[in-house]
Design a protein around this nucleic acid. Structure first.
Lengths: 205, 205
DNA sequence: GGAAAATCTTGACGACTGTCCAGAGGGCGG
DNA sequence: CCGCCCTCTGGACAGTCGTCAAGATTTTCC
């Protein structure tokens, strides 16, 4: 019986992976179930065997997507012992994912935008946004610990700043700007310097 | 002859307005030409009389949209004579447009996102983004003048920060969060305090 | 092995899409 | 008054869409 469930879960994951590939390539507006099926090794009918409808399918994909993203910088946070190590490790991973996975990132922004129009996406999208905010805050608060000064903005604001910088960089990356990644690193560095000041007299209270 | 041109331009603008209304309501993914026509006083056939195809229509709308947005804060910049006046005026207009025109803003983010998938939108979207960046910079650099200290980040970074904050606020506003506008104002205030420091020994003699 | 259940394919359905076009309406110059 | 041209309508077209269900295929179990 447990094998049954696992088998079904595995197939659902397989179809979800094909869906994510298709969404990343075409975007939400142009992704159809038949296109998804063609990106898998099954026919289009099977999608309605494992998922109730299109919204159910995409919602499931969004939840799977979450698991991929959210631990991206945890390794860096866990291993860094100096502010410079953490900063450099983070900046490198940031630029790496921008250059190597721009399609997945534009998919995320696409789906988050859809949630502004389609209420059925809102709960899951908001949950992912919260996870990303916590991910950013794990990095920033660890960095603040290492430099000895607390961050000067709240977690939601911090996340919004990083998100804005990353989104602009993604637009330029997808437009073919070769300096997108480097400028993103510079921008993040400049902002962090202001918001988690390392040099200033680090005397709390 | 000039009247002919004006008449055509007026009708194009009329249809573009109906298109913008439809896009703001439904989003790019669910906007069809027939739906646009129903939001106007004409039939769907006329759209192909004034526009080459759907992409041409939407591109034209995006260009019109630009004119609406870009001068939003110029009045505040022109009339403010103290940092507090400028800050308060800007924050008020920022919150006002978030609350009163969330649909137009989600449309903008939707179209900007589409440009990540559809290269035909990229040029116009990038041009609008530049305009918005300059708009933000007019406000910030004027504010910096008034407080007597230069901004500590570049215009692109400054725009990315504001954009990130606004987008998060928009998500919450559309999800029904009544504190979205106030939190946006608080976030912007906090960031500006770090990035255009007012207090630090820079009082003009 | 054979029955039963799970899984997958295939084709169909009505609805909707962008695009095109034949022709209707109407105002204007002659 | 006619005829012309600009404007607009509404239907037709060839696709595509999500959804569904009947049947074929495979797997499971006794």
């Amino acid at each position: 019986m447990a094998e049954r469930v696992d088998k079904v879960a595995a197939r659902r994951a397989e179809l979800a992976a094909a869906t994510l590939r298709t969404l990343a390539e075409l975007g939400y507006a142009r992704t159809s179930l038949r296109e998804i099926a063609q990106n898998s090794e099954f026919s289009h009918g099977v999608l309605h065997y494992y998922f109730q409808d299109k919204v159910d399918l995409i919602t499931h994909c969004v939840r799977e997507y979450k698991a991929i993203c959210v631990t991206r910088y945890d390794q860096v946070v866990a291993t860094a012992t100096t502010p410079a190590q953490l900063r450099e490790g983070f900046l490198e991973k940031l630029a790496q994912t921008l250059v190597e996975e721009p399609h997945m990132h534009r998919l995320w922004y696409d789906l988050r935008n859809q949630s502004m129009f389609e209420p059925s996406f809102r709960v899951d999208v908001a949950a992912i946004d919260d996870s990303l905010e916590r991910m950013v805050w794990r990095v920033v608060s660890r960095y603040a610990d290492l430099v000895g000064t607390p961050p000067l903005v709240t977690p939601p604001v911090m996340y919004a700043l990083f998100d804005g910088l990353f989104q602009q960089a993604l637009l330029r990356q997808l437009a073919g700007d070769p300096a997108a990644a480097a400028d993103l690193q510079a921008g993040v560095t400049a902002v962090v310097a202001q918001v988690v000041p390392a040099d200033r007299a680090a005397v709390p209270g």
